[in-house]
Design a binder for these strands. Sequence first.
DNA 1: GTCTATACCTAGATAGAC
DNA 2: GTCTATCTAGGTATAGAC
Lengths: 201, 201
Amino acid sequence: MPKRGSYAKGVAKRDEILTRALDVVAEQGFRGASVREIADAVGLSQAGLLHYFGTKEQLFVEILRKRDEVDLTRFEHGTDAPAFLSEDFTGLVAHNAEVPGLVELFSRMSVEAADTAHPAHDYFVRRGEEVRTSFASALRAQQDAGKLSDRIAPEALARIFQAVSDGMQLQWLIDRDVDMAAAVQALFDALSTEPGPPQRP
Amino acid sequence: MPKRGSYAKGVAKRDEILTRALDVVAEQGFRGASVREIADAVGLSQAGLLHYFGTKEQLFVEILRKRDEVDLTRFEHGTDAPAFLSEDFTGLVAHNAEVPGLVELFSRMSVEAADTAHPAHDYFVRRGEEVRTSFASALRAQQDAGKLSDRIAPEALARIFQAVSDGMQLQWLIDRDVDMAAAVQALFDALSTEPGPPQRP
DNA sequence: GTCTATACCTAGATAGAC
DNA sequence: GTCTATCTAGGTATAGAC
């Protein structure tokens, strides 16, 4: 129980800042990835912004967390639905092409978080586990329904899809004409058991 | 035609520095990615090192180029061999686990080169094309030999393998226990037409 | 809670001696 | 060609006023 009413208010303000920051970073990719830029964008001074998040790294992790939160409500329509995979996941990947700044932030932080002492390290560990777990169960369901090749374990395939998603982001950062979602879909199709005609007859 | 003999000598020295830098970066991942660190490692002052490469970015690109050069002679035993893929490529990916610093450098630069004005941008564009082209032709050969599923175009699959390779590096940077080569191999097996028993009988 | 101002640090680049 | 020393820029973090 907080001592003052100000606590809940502070949390609300934090959330408001994050929502705003998310929009700004999404639209205009942030070049330098500096606190000042975010501060300007959300209409606060650099010091004012750090008042809420303490450090640069913590701020950026919170932005990524917020992004996940928003995406989750937007793209996860229940893991049970058999159509989960090719629709929601491919949709999410396609959506990423609309938010260049977030793709860049995510990729950049992903590399920097290699250091176990980095504030974002735990975030990436945890997020990776969650993504793979939920994805693996969806893949298993597809296999059980006979729609997906069972020549590979769902956990292994989940990891591969994660890698494809992350890796396509890197390719897309270099060349914006690359179609990230198409690549994901192509792999899915190749592993599908649907009769669809081979690409190379 | 160079005015003095010093030109060829300078090139040789450059090459020597790069070879040395490659070893050092490979073994001890470089934390800060600073010019000074490399300089210390190769036994030069910061100014002395920049004398050869001009700028930080140029230096780092040259290190990546040198790495490719070395890897190429080490892992590409002729693209014609039918065994090319699962051996050479998987071998290369496995080898990366021995050179953490290079994986980190590559991934980091890959993100920073998103900016078309970045000195490394062209390098990544060109390298991506080369990797995919040579890989696609090897995949096509496998398909023609009936060893690989033809449900996906070789160019599309080459892109996917590139993404898997890059993406697994990101996962591995977060968790060194991850087996990058195993993931690549698993995908290859899943798409193989060999009779081998399914993973989930 | 938010600002201005500033301290402090790191890092790349450059000048100039040898 | 290589070094030492220094300049400069940019960024995070913090102190203190309002």
